[in-house]
Design a protein around this nucleic acid. Structure first.
Length: 276
DNA sequence: ATTGGTTCCTGCTGGC
DNA sequence: TGCCAGCAGGAACCAA
């Protein structure tokens, strides 16, 4: 499931292949993604040169010379994979929904079996107020995301800390894996009520979250099932998970058994003795 | 205002 | 061994 490190890894790969190149062709095979693809999607992009590949939260932003911005979310199972010199039209793979042809024959294939992903069009000037981005919290790797800011954002929230961190309005780009890992590294209980996190704990949590995200990006993200980089390689941060997916295994710090609980319908993995 | 529940979709898993 | 119901999961949306 692509979270910030996976999307960032994909972004870096796509930047290499797409920046400065002209979009020569866009094939749309399906328009019924998480939200309907804009009707003019292909026409709006064809002929435009890509100026920059950017990212906000878990959204990829493909910026074009005429100020158009493609907003792309990979959902649960989305992939963006680069191929050189293959035929864009064939083979027609089952879950391949959109294909971009850029420059002299570079093909970028967006596939997404579960179709929780989406693409939309906006412009540079209305990007920040786009409905999907308008209410999203700070980038976790930005200096704006710090202890005091986190305390402020958790104020008044009575949900468990774990659930609050998954809320994209609190902080952007985190998902189940990196929230579990960050809480473990910070030594904080996922069950703690969010508003009880004061400056000391918030500082620890911010530092832990940044560390986990940075290390994951350096590892090319985590590949559980679907994630591959834009060049088709697997990430390998999953080998560094301390608690995620490790129910019943020994905590790497204290050797107690790692537990799994369900919060707001999502699995939480944690060590009850390290995460007081 | 905040929060819990539902929904979208498909591949995988576990139980029989 | 094979089948199928049920689940997982990001986030918008709705209802309370």
């Amino acid at each position: 499931m692509p979270e910030l490190p996976e999307v960032e890894t994909v972004r870096r790969g796509l930047a290499e292949a797409m920046e400065g190149r002209r979009i020569n062709q866009v094939l749309v095979r399906r328009t019924d993604l998480r939200r309907p693809l804009p009707g003019n999607f292909a026409e709006a992009l064809e002929g435009q040169t890509i100026t920059r590949l950017s990212r906000r939260a878990k959204y990829l932003l493909i910026c074009l010379e005429n100020e158009t911005v493609v907003l792309a979310h990979l959902g649960m199972s989305g992939r963006m994979v680069i191929e050189q010199g293959t035929d864009a039209e064939t083979p027609a793979r089952k879950h391949e929904h959109i294909v971009f042809v850029v420059g002299n024959g570079t093909v970028i294939r967006f596939s997404d079996p579960r179709r929780f992903g989406l693409m939309d069009l906006t412009t540079e000037s209305s990007l920040a107020s786009h409905p999907l981005l308008a209410n999203i919290g700070p980038e976790p790797l930005d200096d704006m995301f710090n202890g005091p800011a986190l305390v402020q954002r958790l104020k008044g929230r009575k949900t468990p800390l774990k659930s609050a961190l998954l809320d994209q309005r609190v902080v952007a780009g985190l998902g189940n894996i990196y929230v579990c890992e960050g809480l473990f590294l910070a030594g904080l209980s996922p069950r703690r009520s969010a508003h009880t996190v004061g400056l000391g704990r918030a500082n620890k949590l911010v530092a832990a979250t940044k560390k986990v995200l940075q290390e994951a990006i350096e590892s090319g993200g985590s590949t559980l099932r679907d994630h591959v980089t834009a060049t088709g390689e697997m990430g390998y941060f999953q080998h560094n998970f301390k608690v995620y997916g490790r129910e019943g295994e020994a905590c790497p710090v204290c050797n107690n058994e790692i537990r799994r609980i369900v919060q707001a319908g999502r699995s939480t993995f944690f060590c009850a003795s390290c995460q007081g």
